[in-house]
Design a protein around this nucleic acid. Sequence first.
DNA 1: AGGTATGTTAATTG
DNA 2: GCAATTAACATACC
Length: 260
Amino acid sequence: MPELPEVEVQRRYLNATSLHRTIDHVRLDAPRLLHESSPQGLGRRLGGHRFDSTQRHGKYLFAVLDDGGALVMHFGMSGRLTFARKAGPPRHTACLLFFRDDSHLAYVAPRRLGGIEVADSCDGFIRRQALGPDALTISRDQFREAAHTRRGGIKAWLMDQQAIAGIGNVYSDEILFQSELHPQQAVRDLDGGCLRDLYRCMRKVLTEAIDAHADPRGMPAGFLLPHRRADGHCPRCGGQVEKLSVSGRTAWYCPTCQSA
DNA sequence: AGGTATGTTAATTG
DNA sequence: GCAATTAACATACC
């Protein structure tokens, strides 16, 4: 479940489990997931090194190495990390990092749509991908400025990783619901007050989701997230939610609370 | 069995 | 060039 909040949870998990352990060797069960390198190359690059810190930009997680390089992870539609000292790796493990103390970190990706690679620096990677500012780092002025030059619908904008990094289908729906904006609302028609509200809602939704460890069961009762279903009801007005196809994704929204 | 799914990217169309 | 749409990718789940 990897949008910004889910990736942030993975980052904290990696931080809590896998820093400062020397990497011994690497096992790659799904070689396709490795971008721009060979399995042998990955092992040579990581072996003997350790992760000193982590960084996140949008939906990308960086495990920063002791030499400044970084293992870059993207979780696609289904990825997650699992650390263990003894137990074997779970099903669908795509890549396994063994530490010298016999513990390991598994990159698990049942749907195998993510990817891992090694970058010389986090910033270099972010530039190469042309990612926009992270959704939790972008300033209100930057946000307003970005909106100013954007044409088209608001949901597509929020989900455009080169505009703002970190927001995907589920959380763009949530942000628009909290902002009471229709998914196809034109960005250029939003006035300053609307943009300020949208910015505030974006930060609120993302931080509240992180606070709930990205688990919908722990999120505030007013969230649309659990009701994004054919029989779902709006937590605000009780009306039936509806879906639209926007940017190739299914947008769930409340037609009463989110008028065009 | 078929439709759906939180991801990105490439190709196409307006 | 930009924005929207579609297909493709790989697999699990209902």
